[in-house]
Design a protein around this nucleic acid. Structure first.
Length: 231
DNA sequence: AACGATATCAACCGCCTCGTA
DNA sequence: GTACGAGGCGGTTGATATCGT
C-alpha cells in the first residue's frame, strides 16, 4: 500500500502542470516516476504523474470516437482476455487502457449484453471457460501462417485430476470448442461476417505492421505465465 | 428555462507483481 | 527467505456534459 504524501495536489490537471510534466518527460524520458514530481516541480504524487502522461499527454494518443473496427476488435479481445485492458489496448494503437475500459463500460458492454440477451432468447449457449494449458513446444496457432487457422490444438491438461487419455481428448474438445465459440460468435451489426463461418481473423497487415493474429504471442505468454503460477 | 436523470471520461484508490538489498 | 519500494493494473468515483421532460 502506497500512502499519498500529505499536501499533494489532487483533481484535474492544469495547463501549466501539463507543460511541466511534458518538459520533464522530454528531458529525462519516461520511467523513474518517483523522481518525476521533484524533477518537474509538480506537487503531485508519482502515480498521478504517470497516469496523466500515459492517458493524456503521451504523443500519438488517438482521441475521438472509436471506429466500428476498433469496437469489433475490443469485443473479440474482451471475449478472449476478459478485463485485461492493458493487453487489449496494446492491440489498439493510440488507445490507452483507460480509454478502452471507459469505452467498454459506457458503450460496448451494453451492446454485448443486448446481443447476448437476444441470442439467449433464440438459443441456449453453453459457455466454456478456458483453463490454463501447457502447449506443446510448437503450438499450431502460434505460427504466423496467415492462410490457415486450424483450431485443432494439441495440448496436455495440467489441471486434470485424472489425466487419462479420454479426459485429455475431452479437454481437446473443450478447447477446440472454446476457440470455435470465440471465432464464430462475434457478429458485426447483427450479422455474422461474410466469407468464413464467422471467422474473421482474416489477416490484413495494417500500416503499423500489426494485425489481429499478432495477439497470439501475448496470449501464449498469458497462458504460460498462468500455468507457471499454478504449478 | 429549469431541473432531474443519465452518460461520459479523467482521475484516484487499493492491490498485485517484480526487482533489489 | 523476506521486507521494501516502484511500477503497473483494474475497479471505482466524481465532476461535467448531455438529454429528456
Amino acid at each position: 500500500m502506497v500512502s499519498t504524501p500529505v499536501g499533494v495536489r489532487k483533481g484535474a490537471w492544469t495547463e501549466e502542470e501539463d507543460n511541466l510534466l511534458r518538459k520533464c518527460i522530454d528531458k529525462y524520458g519516461e520511467g523513474k516516476w518517483h523522481q518525476v514530481p521533484l524533477r518537474a516541480g509538480l506537487n503531485r504524487c508519482r502515480k498521478s504523474c504517470r497516469l496523466r502522461w500515459l492517458n493524456y499527454l503521451r504523443p500519438n494518443i488517438k482521441r475521438g470516437d472509436f471506429t466500428p473496427d476498433e469496437d469489433d476488435l475490443i469485443m473479440r479481445l474482451h471475449k478472449l482476455l476478459g478485463n485485461r485492458w492493458s493487453l487489449i489496448s496494446g492491440r489498439l494503437p493510440g488507445r490507452t487502457a483507460n480509454d478502452v475500459k471507459n469505452h467498454w463500460n459506457s458503450h460496448l458492454q451494453k451492446k454485448v449484453l443486448a446481443r447476448e440477451e437476444g441470442r439467449s432468447k433464440s438459443q441456449k449457449t453453453t459457455i466454456l471457460k478456458p483453463r490454463p494449458r501447457t502447449f506443446k513446444r510448437i503450438a499450431p496457432f502460434s505460427c504466423r501462417d496467415k492462410t490457415t487457422y486450424e483450431p485443432n490444438i494439441s495440448i496436455t491438461d495440467q489441471n486434470s485430476d485424472n489425466p487419462s487419455a479420454s479426459s485429455s481428448k475431452q479437454v481437446d474438445d473443450e478447447c477446440t470448442q472454446w476457440w470455435s465459440n470465440l471465432l464464430d460468435s462475434v457478429e458485426i451489426d447483427g450479422e455474422t461476417e461474410p466469407g468464413s463461418n464467422g471467422i474473421s481473423l482474416e489477416l490484413q497487415e495494417e500500416d503499423n505492421g500489426w494485425n489481429d493474429f499478432s495477439l497470439d504471442m501475448d496470449i501464449l505468454k498469458l497462458l504460460s505465465s498462468e500455468n507457471k503460477r499454478i504449478n
